[in-house]
Write a protein that binds this DNA or RNA. Structure first.
Lengths: 174, 174
DNA sequence: GACGATGTAAAATGAACGTTTTACATTGGT
DNA sequence: ACCAATGTAAAACGTTCATTTTACATCGTC
């Protein structure tokens, strides 16, 4: 496990549990078990570290979404919530905390959202045989809503989203 | 306009645009046009001010949701997004920034979420004549998802949620 | 066995944080 | 006219922030 891996892993957990601004550099160095000099030599700055954490999370999340149906997509989200907990979309949280004033963070967030949207669009087209923009938007909303609502309603929110997606999909014949 | 009104109004705008932690007390006093001494005499502390801002926002939001159908509920959300912009649910953002470590904030957030959920449950029962817990959960997810997705997809996310809700509702006969 | 790279430990930087305090101005009620 | 209340302005509080620097240890490699 490289220094960067330790740093990103520890930072992601701390950011997720306590927020980005509320997590100071001392917590990050302490969490990763490295000195602040090493942190800055590797990460450059706190904002750069945040962006890197988000990009790594995007990769890990995308790997989980390598499925072949909308239903499996929501099943994957259920697994994610069960394993990683439900504290809301870390990307949108980063955006909210920084007010969209940090370009490297904005870029990471938008790239992630575009990737998820494209994944959903591909699955919808694969299942319906059509390019149904409205249905894609509906699935995106359900996916985002399940992530957010799971914070305070738990896994049942994801289960409800999954069933809603199935219903909407069943109504869209090819 | 009382001092408290000025303070809460200015604070809500600043918190919403720049985040809670990133907004310092100097910005808040300057935004409200009052001294820090007056702010502390009225609000007590920053966390108490945040809780008050959330409670006031909950009231204002609830007033907007005084409608008689699920469709009108999403229409109201469309109006809200058009007027107030889409930077995500301020309640969940507050929860995320504080990591759930501030009881007064947690209370304000949960109270808000319970209130919205009850509103949705009442409307669903009014329209279907039944107590359909799954359908209620689905509408909650759509509502939450529209709020979150609107950040990066704009009003079309709310429109999609609205139509999805109509479809799901049509499938639930009384 | 010396060397450059790479790490740690710890102190220093200067600014910003939330909060309190001191000193003073304004004002409305009796 | 006066007093208590309520406001402002501004400095001071001690802490914490992100970042840099200084000094020193450890290492694999030639």
């Amino acid at each position: 496990m490289t220094i960067m891996d330790k740093l990103v892993t520890a930072s992601e957990a701390l950011f997720d549990r306590h927020g980005f601004t509320a997590t100071g550099m001392d917590k990050l160095t302490q969490g990763a078990g490295i000195s602040s000099r090493t942190l800055y030599k590797h990460a450059g700055s706190k904002n750069a570290l945040i962006a890197r954490v988000l990009n790594e999370r995007d990769k890990r999340f995308a790997r989980r979404l390598e499925v072949e149906s909308i239903d499996a997509l929501f099943k994957a989200l259920e697994d994610w919530v069960r394993v990683e907990g439900a504290r809301g979309c870390l990307f949108l949280r980063a955006l909210g905390e920084t007010g969209g004033d940090t370009p490297e963070i904005v870029d990471a967030v938008l790239a992630h959202k575009v990737r998820v949207a494209e994944r959903i669009a591909a699955l919808v087209e694969h299942e319906t045989g059509r390019d149904d923009a409205m249905l894609v938007e509906q699935i995106i909303v359900l996916f985002e809503g399940a992530t957010a609502a799971a914070i305070y309603r738990g896994e049942q929110a994801v289960a409800a989203a999954r069933q809603a997606a199935a219903t909407l999909l069943a109504g869209a014949h090819s």
